[in-house]
Design a protein around this nucleic acid. Structure first.
Length: 851
RNA sequence: GGGGACGUGGCGGAACCGGUAGACGCAGCGGACUUAAAAUCCGUUGGCCUUUGGCCGUGAGGGUUCGAUUCCCUCCGUCCCCACCA
């Protein structure tokens, strides 16, 4: 027997695929198209097994669909702008372009070594001017459409990364990347009008039936649609403005209003602050508080009584005081609320602190109107309205409708839908990004860079030695003449958020060499992506932006689809145990030797024998040093073993724990499979044994096919183990004919191909098959052979298993009943009992109800 | 505070539409081969009992059903998302 040697076999087949150009996708072909895409990586320089799992999943789908006869597009690119390059530039003085491109070279080689069936002719990198230049082109077209605007406003400023963050990038009040507490700063920023598409983005979720419910729900919550009422509270005494406009989702509780409050950055508060130092101090104090979970939980309600009064819209005699309150947010609704302490906990906390009246207006179903009081907890449950004149007696929903109708009749407000979603701030004060292609001219204002002057390239040799934006201090780059008037002008120095780069790359893959940003015909052919695969951490950010940009480009006539990703799969991460020395230092798994003694495991450093503590299983990270590189595994077991293992054991959507024992298991399977192909040409042939092997083969084809279709790759691998055993047992125990074995092995090679493609090619060639298994058709199964002819049916008596009978497949209930009642064992069990009911589930189970 | 998911052997997990719970792998145990070890192969492995048989068992408790890991209710635990969003 020849031991399988991946180090020799694997490169040979990768060369064969290259020579045959086996994975090139031809746009337009007689075959149905299938576009499978994994979220493109950031070229950090290191490929770890987490990447390997992600791309292996996509590769299983790609290879399977190709075998099924689809014209498959499976491309790869690089999300190449981003902070790590700038950090490297700052720390080591390297050029970010050179650093990024060399990382790409290294990672491309590592990815290629995984044997992925990728069409490398379509490779793209977002830091390439041929890519970001096209991005600038469509950005300017969206600008013409009015989807791009500048505004001055409070922005989330990351003091460590020295840039602005989108709301989506602020997590618990800290920068998503730096983890530093975010500051609020006033800056003029570029925005994309994603809110124009709020309703469409929400509605579109309905059609995404091949997306995880979880992701759709997260996007739904993020868009955060709420129906309510926008209404005016006129000032009791004349003010520069006539009224305060508030937004509420509880118009039914209007008669419970006891104050009106505005946000500290509301125009009214700012006006008052301008003329009153005490107000200015109060507003400043409101801005101090952090936004972390703990701080919000314990944050004290702060209020400032302005002394102003407004009139209740339903009764000119009712006056409400106007407060400035720290818990009112300028960004949501109108930045002003009416407080109804009886039925809102925050309003109640505020009212108790500042001694404002609490009037309950919703009566719980079981409560009594005379005795019901709100104490320390606001009542937010169902009930009937009381203390509310014309609304009295109505249920909450009916009261909302009646109140809205009345406000509208009075002309004091209008029913309104509000979204939590805010416009997408895309300005970043960074050098390593796509320049925003506009020029600021004193005379002409903001002037778009003419299309024939695109791309606006980043300058060579940017100076990253100091923090801040190198573009802003590169005068040679910045000073230009105005395209309109020819006068002196300056380039915009902000660059685009990297999420803009990743919001359309899937469309560029349709034809990455086109002169236009998007080759319409190619995109119409390939889009939408049939199967998109990536981490759930992108559930709102990337996936929402991509859906928005796709819509905007569709409205611009550049795309035909509205939804970029028809199918989405969110895969889990690869985790690993962590190891620490006594002094707390993390130790790499490669240096650790594990010793098992009975049920206990001991870990120590292999070279020195120093014991190390085995810590938690965690996401692979450089800081904990628990990263495993595919290259190290390939050295010992080959990449097929690594691919096989990361897909086995755990369901793809869940995390999988990398273990040395697990890879060894996969390695054993590879050798077992190879051993079968290495033992051809034996066996004389026995009809019964041949038929059994044939049945095993068809069962396996069916099981593996269905598991792949259902994204249950772990189950698919389990079925491969099983089928391998079937083939081996048939050879060892029975006289199986050579032709029956060849049929089984031909199927096995093709079933293995999506998971361990190099092994499959070697097996295919050993069988003497012509061509590549990568281009062979997927095996099909015969339903007559994938099911047993005779079934063993368990027989239950009163729900307890009491025996079993054998019956032909598809036997009717009556036939099965006859068999069961004729069975000696069952008859013995039924002695002294009367059968009351017989339930037969054909081909499944029999249950006798007897007493 | 709001929303969601999950909980099955020593471990990762399987069980498709309510129909034999524990597939497959890891670890363990026993054996074969070997001078020996590794590798490989074969067998075995949920718990308990009075063991040709029986009882219990899918976080806990209840319910629906001939039948529940699966559906419903309550509780406990873990994880994820959102969050002073009116």
């Amino acid at each position: 027997m020849v031991r399988y040697n991946p180090k020799a076999v694997e490169p040979k087949w990768r060369a064969a695929w290259d020579a045959a150009d086996a994975f090139r996708a031809e746009t337009g072909s007689g075959k149905p198209k299938y576009y499978v895409l994994e979220m493109f990586p950031y070229p950090s320089g290191n490929l770890h097994v987490g990447h390997a799992r992600n791309y292996a999943m996509g590769d299983v789908v790609a290879r399977y669909k190709r075998a099924q006869g689809f014209n498959v597009l499976h491309p790869m690119g690089w999300d190449a702008f981003g902070l790590p390059a700038e950090n490297a530039a700052q720390e080591r003085g390297v050029d970010p372009t050179a650093w990024t491109l060399s990382n790409i070279d290294r990672m491309r080689a590592e990815l290629k070594a995984l044997g992925l069936s990728i069409d490398w002719s379509r490779e793209l990198a977002t830091c390439d001017p041929t890519y970001y230049g096209r991005q600038q082109a469509w950005f300017l077209r969206l600008m013409e459409r009015g989807l791009v605007y500048r505004k001055e406003g409070l922005v989330n400023w990351d003091p460590v990364d020295m840039t602005v963050l989108a709301n989506e990038q602020v997590i618990d009040g800290c920068g998503w990347r730096s983890g530093a507490p975010v500051e609020r700063r006033k800056l003029t920023q570029w925005f994309l009008r994603i809110t124009d598409y709020a309703e469409d983005l929400l509605e579109g979720l309905q059609s995404l039936d091949r997306w995880p419910d979880k992701v759709r729900l997260m996007q739904e919550n993020w868009i955060g649609k709420s129906r309510g009422l926008r209404l005016d509270f006129p000032f009791a005494a004349p003010q520069p403005e006539p009224a305060i406009t508030v937004y509420t989702t509880r118009p039914d509780t209007l008669f419970g209003a006891s104050f009106v409050a505005v946000a500290p950055d509301h125009p009214l508060a700012e006006r008052l602050a301008a003329s009153d130092d005490r107000v200015r101090d109060f507003v400043a104090r409101c801005r101090l508080g952090g936004t972390s979970e703990a701080e919000i939980e314990s944050a004290e309600k702060l209020g400032w009584d302005t002394g102003l009064e407004v009139v209740h819209p339903f009764d000119p005699d009712m006056r409400l005081p106007v407060w400035i309150a720290n818990f009112v947010l300028m960004e949501y609704g109108t930045g002003a609320i009416f407080g109804c302490p009886g039925h809102d906990q925050r309003d109640l906390d505020f009212a108790r602190k500042y001694d404002l009246p609490v009037t309950p207006v919703v009566l719980p179903p079981t409560a009594d109107a005379a005795s019901f009081h709100v104490k320390q907890e606001a009542y937010v449950g169902p009930g009937r309205i009381f203390n509310s004149r014309f609304l009295d007696g109505l249920e909450i929903e009916a009261a909302k409708a009646a109140a809205i109708a009345e406000v509208e009749r009075l002309g004091m407000g209008v029913g309104a839908t509000v979204y939590r979603l805010r416009d997408w701030g895309v300005s970043r004060q960074r050098g390593w990004g796509c320049p925003i292609p506009v020029i600021h001219c004193q005379a002409c204002g903001v002037v778009p860079v003419p299309e024939d002057q695109l791309p606006v390239r980043l300058p060579e040799g940017m100076d990253f030695s100091r923090p801040g934006n190198p573009l802003a201090r590169d005068e040679a780059w910045r000073q230009v003449s105005c395209p309109k008037c020819g006068g002196a002008a300056q380039r915009e120095t902000d660059t685009l958020d990297t999420f803009v780069d990743s919001s359309w790359y899937f469309a560029r893959f349709a034809n990455p060499h086109a002169a236009a940003p998007i080759d319409g015909a190619a995109a119409d052919y390939w889009l939408p992506v049939d199967q998109y695969i990536g981490g759930v951490e992108h559930a709102v950010l990337h996936l929402l932006y991509a859906r928005f940009v796709t819509r905007a480009l569709a409205d611009e006539g550049m795309l035909k689809v509205k939804e970029p990703f028809a199918g989405l799969f969110t895969q889990g991460m690869v985790t690993h145990e962590t190891y620490r020395r006594q002094n707390g230092e993390w130790v790499e798994p490669g240096m650790v030797e594990i010793e098992t003694e009975g049920a206990t495991r001991r870990a120590r450093i292999a070279e020195t024998g120093e014991p190390v503590a085995v810590g938690d299983v965690e996401k692979m990270s450089k800081s904990k040093r628990n990263v495993v590189a595919p290259a190290d595994i390939a050295e010992t077991y080959g990449v097929d073993a690594a691919r096989l293992f990361v897909l086995s054991d755990s369901p793809p959507e869940r995390d999988v724990q990398w273990t040395a024992a697990g890879v060894e298991g996969a390695w054993r399977l590879i050798n077992r499979i190879w051993a079968e192909f290495d033992a051809l040409g034996e066996g004389a042939g026995d009809a019964a044994a041949d038929l059994e092997l044939l049945r095993g083969t068809h069962k396996a084809i069916k099981a593996v096919t269905e598991a792949i279709e259902g994204f249950r790759f772990n189950s698919a691998v389990a079925r491969l183990y099983e089928f391998t055993s079937v083939v081996r047992t048939a050879r060892a125990d029975a006289a199986v004919s050579d032709s029956a074995r060849r049929t089984a092995l031909s199927a096995l090679a093709r079933l293995v191909a999506p998971f361990a493609p190099h092994l499959a090619e070697e097996c295919w060639s050993e069988l003497g098959e012509s061509g590549l298994v990568a281009q062979a058709a997927w095996p099909s199964w015969d339903p007559a052979l994938s099911e047993d002819e005779e079934r063993t049916l368990p027989v239950q008596i009163n729900g307890k298993r009491r025996g079993e009978v054998r019956a032909p497949a598809g036997a009717s209930a009556a036939e099965v009943e006859q068999i069961v009642l004729g069975d000696d064992e069952i008859r013995r069990r039924l002695e002294g009992l009367t059968i009351r009911k017989v339930i037969v589930v054909p081909d499944r189970i029999v249950n006798l109800v007897a007493g």
